[in-house]
Amino acid sequence: MKRLAFFLTSILLAVFVSVAHAAPQAYVLAQGSKVEFFYSSGPEPTRGTFPITGADIVVDLENVRRSRVDVDVSTARVRVADPFGMVALKGEDMLNTGRYPTARFQSRRITRTRDGAQIEGDLTLKGIRVPVVLQAIFLRKSTAPVDNSELILRVSGEVSRKAFGITGFPNLVKDMIRLDFVVNIARPI
């Protein structure tokens, strides 16, 4: 009985020490990060992408409230399949990329959910800051190290384009735009 008690105490102590020493970890942006967006202009949604150009991300998998996400996106480098659509997206009544070549998302509060995390933050687009609530999950590629040094942060949600003054083509493009951030991150070496 003493051996079992010692064994259980050792396990609990090891778990406590590992959790007590768990701390938020800084991550840097890795290759392949992007924001996909989907908008309806017909029977099938149209997809486009923005490259993520910078990120300040801190992750604490034990206590997600101590995590933070700050992501910069190049709206000037928007890509959609239709070349006319791409020119229209960069125009003044859409993204106005000549004046506003970047967008930014900054988290204010992150809370754990049953399936991942909820991120409350501010999305700034065309110089207009709008509070948004996004859903997030942390993933690891099957080929990544098991020490969580390489992660994928997948963030999704919807925003109103009118809230950002994006009013072009109201008869063709619906108001709600679905966002899907795929942020590849790694701990600095």
Score class of each variant (00 low, 15 high):
24 P>K: 14
24 P>T: 15
24 P>I: 15
25 Q>V: 15
26 A>V: 14
27 Y>M: 09
27 Y>N: 06
28 V>N: 11
28 V>S: 13
29 L>G: 12
30 A>Y: 10
32 G>A: 09
32 G>M: 07
33 S>V: 13
33 S>W: 10
34 K>L: 11
34 K>Y: 11
35 V>D: 00
35 V>P: 01
35 V>F: 06
35 V>T: 08
35 V>S: 03
36 E>S: 10
36 E>C: 06
38 F>N: 06
38 F>K: 11
39 Y>H: 07
39 Y>D: 01
40 S>E: 07
40 S>D: 12
40 S>P: 07
40 S>G: 12
41 S>D: 08
41 S>V: 13
42 G>L: 11
44 E>R: 15
45 P>R: 05
45 P>F: 07
46 T>K: 09
47 R>G: 01
47 R>P: 02
48 G>Q: 01
48 G>Y: 01
49 T>V: 14
50 F>T: 00
50 F>G: 00
51 P>F: 07
51 P>V: 06
52 I>F: 00
52 I>E: 00
53 T>C: 02
53 T>G: 02
54 G>W: 01
55 A>W: 00
55 A>R: 00
56 D>Y: 07
56 D>F: 04
57 I>L: 11
57 I>R: 05
57 I>F: 10
57 I>P: 07
58 V>I: 11
58 V>P: 05
58 V>C: 04
59 V>Y: 00
59 V>H: 02
60 D>H: 10
60 D>S: 11
60 D>N: 13
61 L>I: 03
61 L>Y: 00
63 N>L: 09
64 V>H: 03
64 V>T: 11
65 R>N: 06
65 R>M: 05
65 R>W: 00
65 R>L: 04
66 R>M: 07
67 S>A: 13
68 R>D: 01
69 V>F: 10
71 V>F: 06
71 V>L: 07
71 V>A: 03
71 V>N: 00
71 V>C: 06
